[in-house]
Design a protein around this nucleic acid. Structure first.
Ligand SMILES: [Mn+2]
Ligand SMILES: [Mn+2]
Ligand SMILES: [Mn+2]
Ligand SMILES: [Mn+2]
Lengths: 223, 223
DNA sequence: ATATAAAGTTAGAATATTCTAACAAAATTA
DNA sequence: TAATTTTGTTAGAATATTCTAACTTTATAT
């Protein structure tokens, strides 16, 4: 079994890899708030343990084994977040820090029970996919809201960053997952987007905010 | 804040103190499965931190501060056990190991929510009292089943030891908390007790089992 | 192509937690 | 009381995780 610490490194590598397929020491250092030499040592250790591929001066990649173990921690994290929101009544902006701790609990039964009580959810409260027991997860191809065109009607499906502040901001604007959003216009000089949703008209969202919002295009899908 | 490790020591001291009011190094060593010299070092550390009173060759006692902090961990442990049983459907024999881990979660909101969802319970699934937010707990005076006399009719209120094995044994005998038990006879040579409860007649319980069962005498209480 | 900056590494040290071996004190037994 | 057992302590070492300081390699900018 991995220690609490090793699990946090694996998870960070997994998350950084999500976009680029690899993670470098410098980014891990920032992400984990741990100095580079410390990260460097841990990379050697994880490499020795067969969890990552590591060669000096190169970015690290998870091995099959590392991938699987990281996915299981992410799975526990996201199941926990979902449980906290759906079964305990927390807001989506309140669950990350708690899940950050509970993800390390060693008890397959505990997470199996959560999964069951939740009805085997596929996504967490932030729209991120929950890996299944085998570490597989379905990535639906979403678009960033700041890449949509005026006239597009889209559905809010996920956030790419889930800091408390950002989520609380979305709360104040009534912007929840599954909200149908119509893109009205985009300012050419700063990318500010004007949208409509629910009963709100002429709502302004900065480009930075829209960069963190993932949407699917509203289309009638043949079932 | 205390580390995970320090919390486990505090809890062990608290539990051992429950009976004698103090704990010695040797017992702590056995309880925690940590060698005596290690426990000895930790006693110095906890003493330096003002959590216990410690003098060489003497048993340790919790200070006010240590008492309070230990009680808060016990509170989190017992609330968790209650939540797992009442809200997630686990058996009373399945929750200790999970609670042992979740008790270390740092999130007042998380435990406050559990408490609220449970309706502010006073006891855990094993009949042990749950300390309140101030660390106070109500100890009802129960009797051991092996100290009852033939003819007594009592109510099963708590277990003093909650190992999986023991609780599973009680499950197989349909012995749950609140069961009304009638003491029929006690063998003088080995203390084996014959009892009746539910629809079971002439049920035999060893003295060792009865030593771990706490009961209250069934009496009409004026309300 | 240099020079500068950024990223990565090595060396050495600190803290936390644990252990074994050896010794000392206290309690129990004879 | 003296011998023995149990309990407790000290010393010294190992592992895990982290840091700072100094150095090296790679990437970027002039
Ligand atoms: Mn999260
Ligand atoms: Mn974590
Ligand atoms: Mn317990
Ligand atoms: Mn614990």
């Amino acid at each position: 079994m991995n220690t609490h610490t090793e699990e946090n490194y694996l998870k960070a590598i997994f998350n950084l890899s999500a976009t680029k397929g690899e993670a470098n020491v410098n980014e891990l250092s920032r992400q984990l708030d741990i100095k580079m030499p410390t990260v460097n040592s841990m990379m050697k250790k994880l490499s020795d343990r067969g969890l990552i591929i590591y060669e000096s001066y190169k970015p690290v990649r998870l091995t099959k084994k590392g991938q699987k173990e990281a996915a299981m921690i992410i799975r526990k994290h996201r199941l926990t977040e979902m449980y906290l929101v759906e079964k305990m009544g927390f807001g989506w902006d309140e669950v990350h820090d708690i899940a950050e701790q509970i993800e390390h609990v060693q008890s397959p039964e505990f997470f199996a029970k959560m999964d069951e009580l939740l009805g085997y959810p596929k996504v967490d409260p932030h729209g991120s996919p929950i890996p299944d027991r085998n570490g597989k997860m379905e990535w639906t191809e979403y678009h960033k809201l700041n890449e949509c065109k005026p006239g597009d009607t889209v559905i809010f499906k996920a956030v790419t960053h889930s800091s408390d502040d950002f989520l609380k901001f979305l709360n104040t604007r009534e912007l929840l997952l599954e909200t149908v959003i119509k893109v009205i216009s985009i300012e050419s000089f700063d990318g500010t987007i004007t949208v409509e949703y629910n009963k709100r008209k002429q709502e302004l969202l900065s480009n930075i905010v829209c960069d963190k919002i993932l949407v699917s295009h509203k289309k009638t899908r043949s079932v």
